[in-house]
Design a protein around this nucleic acid. Structure first.
Length: 127
DNA sequence: AACGTGACCCTAG
DNA sequence: ACTAGGGCCACGT
């Protein structure tokens, strides 16, 4: 048995960057949205926007059991720089992302945030 | 262990 | 205006 406490969970994906991404994502106010690039820039890794996407993916995959209530990572509030819901297919259903946004008052049409600029929340500016 | 693939973004032709 | 390619780095095969 891997008597080791934490080391057993020496999980490869929980790097600092990923945690920081989750932390920032949690700060996105309901009804607002931001982009992968904006988060990456805020964290000083402007060219790692792709990794932000992976971090979001991970957030959804995370075991609800492994992490009791430490989950409020609003992945639905992160879209690409054009306001398109490029990650929708990773949600339980293809429409879940749009539905969650709509529930917060963010209008979505054709998998795209309507009036993106008005809803855009830039951590570098707002934080 | 190298290779391809991604919830991206920017620059250049 | 449109297409192509580079950079980034974690993951699955």
């Amino acid at each position: 048995m891997n008597g080791e406490l934490g080391s057993a969970t020496a999980r490869p994906g929980s790097g600092e960057f990923e945690r920081d991404v989750h932390a920032v994502a949690r700060l996105i106010p309901p009804g607002r949205v931001t982009s992968y690039g904006a988060i990456a820039r805020y964290l000083g890794a402007a060219r790692s926007s792709r990794m932000v996407g992976w971090a979001m993916n991970r957030a959804l995959d995370a075991d609800p059991i492994d992490t009791p209530q430490v989950h409020p990572v609003p992945a639905h509030r992160v879209v690409n720089r054009l306001g398109m819901l490029s990650g929708r297919l990773h949600f339980p259903t293809p429409t879940a992302m749009a539905e969650r946004l709509m529930a917060e008052g963010v209008e979505v049409r054709d998998d795209r945030v309507v009036d993106f600029d008005a809803h855009f929340w830039d951590p570098s500016t707002e934080l």
